[in-house]
Design a protein around this nucleic acid. Structure first.
Lengths: 342, 342
DNA sequence: TACGTGAGTCAAATCGATTTGAGCCGACGA
DNA sequence: TCGTCGGCTCAAATCGATTTGACTCACGTA
């Protein structure tokens, strides 16, 4: 039992602090701090003695104490609706990769799109003293309390919800992507094109792109062909059901996201409809699952990873002081990905 | 421009501290602390005055300072190979949900299965003073430095890698699940059953279950039918390719995870093989994608969410002091999920 | 000799809370 | 009247680092 042995080891009774190191090395805590931070020159031999003491004692600086003094946590928070959603998982990964090398860790909050939780997490992470916040939660956050001098913690918004001149924003170009996708549909000769939108109030850019392309192609958009889903596969399924139950069903359906498109595809399979022969289906996001369905989903790529890593870069540029200006907005292109469903 | 207005607001010049509140209320910081924590009785009217001051000043306690003093961060870390992998995303969500209500936040680390990163993150989160750690990283962590008195931070391991009597473990019953899956295959009359295993050294439980069921059914397992993939769809694709190129290819394939099973399915489609008529395919994990492929994947459910939330519960039981004993091990059943590919 | 000057070090203040032993005050019992 | 006991409140120490003004010492210079 090697582990029970350990229990009897001459364990350090209490955590070793910078003062212990200083004692051991015969210098002051100040000096130890300086050899660690390099903010002030330390005699080479002194430094060696200190390093030796650190090694012998196995000293590791207490980040909490450090954070208190320096007022930075080297931690950045990301607020998403649901990490389980592959889009946000990838986004989170992009962010984590971008900030990791600069020594920042990532703290994740799932809001389930609930405004209440968004607010709660916002306050929570502020109190925790994170150095930056990335908001990717679908709900609007424009009314979150940015107290005047509340703090200068940089905030990045992904999506187009928060309109605040001091905060950077990253917006995938949903409108252009949807426009292109819809134009692709019209150019292929589809006549009755439906759209499964997101829930009321959200994803309006995608709807706008759809309408713009329809108008450009001089197609009328019939009211009964504009239905809504709740972003989920099941929601897409139900919406598609209602669409196909119409007296004159659509010959193409543009869905505001892939999950709903997959739900729509479920309906097509159930009804034994040929895709895209009987009905074409397009999605938006290009999640992994888009290449798993048969036929593979024609969709619009939503650059999740890039959005996350760009968010990280913008954050770092502010945290390092390289940039201090007003809020920037970077818009990311959403290219069309043609596969088998349209 | 409502925002520029704000800039001229009579902003609190500096963060408001407990001392400010105390001054405002005409009491000592001690008293303020007590009304907030309730650890000592405070006169009702005094309390009211303090609360009023807190409200007026918009005071919010600084968690970093609090953490320093109390030695707890109300933050728990989860170390996973890749949050982008749906299995780990769900696991993480289960954990987050479990600990959220107790006021704990989650800090996520992606190791990509690299031992070096595992170690780095372990030290990182220890230094950050997290209150608990959940290890779900695929690599073995048995040699991570648990210094003797290093700390009493509870650690939970998901999977069967870390063998440490002081740390709780959660292990999905891979062996039983695989055994049941394989037995299902033999009972259906498949004769030449192959297995696509994980990479060398990993997932040995699943292989063990496979072998046990084969033996129980008195089937020989031909060496050329035991191949390996790297857990990815592409890896499964390649393994399946080599399997189907055999002189006498298998009539059923059990894959160590769903992603590889989906890769195998890709091959079947490419070769225009009937599934499960020409070849049956089974996976393991039951990720979302399993219900997206056609036909839907017959698989074994790996209870990711439950594993995460159980980890959270075990952690909380220790953090609250309700439990202080030796390491517990909870094994989670992995039930068979019969769908369309076998 | 006296005077910068600069390299290296240190003491003490600070970050913003929590914790604890002690003090004050009024009530109550002897 | 005195002692004591409870209920409240406070001052001061503490958590473990960073930061800064000041000090020492040696050296070169006027």
């Amino acid at each position: 039992m090697s582990w029970s042995d350990r229990a009897e080891a001459p364990a350090t009774p209490t955590r070793v602090t910078i003062a212990n190191v200083a004692d051991r090395a015969g210098v002051s805590p100040t000096t130890v701090s300086h050899v660690l931070s390099g903010k002030r020159v330390v005699n080479a031999t002194t430094r060696e003695v200190v390093m030796e003491a650190i090694r012998e004692l196995g000293y590791r600086p207490n980040h909490v104490a450090r954070n208190l003094r320096t007022r930075q946590s080297h931690m950045i928070a990301i607020v998403v609706p649901d990490i389980t959603n592959p889009f946000y998982a990838v986004l989170t990964r992009g962010l984590a990769d971008a900030v990791d090398s600069a020594g920042y860790g990532t703290y994740v909050c799932n809001t389930d799109g609930q405004h209440e939780r968004e607010r709660k997490f916002f306050e929570d992470v502020m109190d925790r003293g994170v150095d930056g916040i990335v908001f990717a939660s679908g709900e609007t956050v424009s009314d979150i309390t940015f107290g005047p001098g509340e703090s200068s913690t940089p905030i990045i918004c992904i999506g187009d919800h928060l309109d605040h001149p001091l905060c950077d924003a990253i917006t995938p170009d949903d409108e252009a992507g949807s426009r292109e996708a819809t134009a692709f549909l019209t150019s292929r000769g589809y006549r009755r094109i439906a759209m499964i939108q997101g829930p009321q109030r959200y994803g309006s850019q995608r709807t706008a792109g759809f309408r713009a392309a329809m108008q450009a192609a001089k197609h009328k958009v019939a009211a009964e062909l504009m239905v809504r889903g709740d972003w989920t596969r099941k929601g897409g399924y139900q919406a598609m059901r209602s669409l196909m139950a119409l007296d004159s069903p659509p010959d193409a359906v543009f869905c505001a996201n892939d999950l709903m498109a997959i739900g729509a595809l479920d309906v097509a399979h159930e009804l034994e409809l040929e895709v895209p022969g009987d009905v074409a289906i397009m999605g938006f996001d290009d999640v992994d699952a888009a290449t798993i369905v048969t036929p593979q989903l024609t969709t619009v790529r939503n650059p999740a990873y890039e959005a996350g890593s760009t968010a990280g870069d913008l954050l770092l540029s502010r945290l390092s002081g390289r940039y201090t200006g007003a809020g920037r907005t970077v818009v990311l292109p959403c290219p069309l990905v043609v596969r088998g469903t349209a």
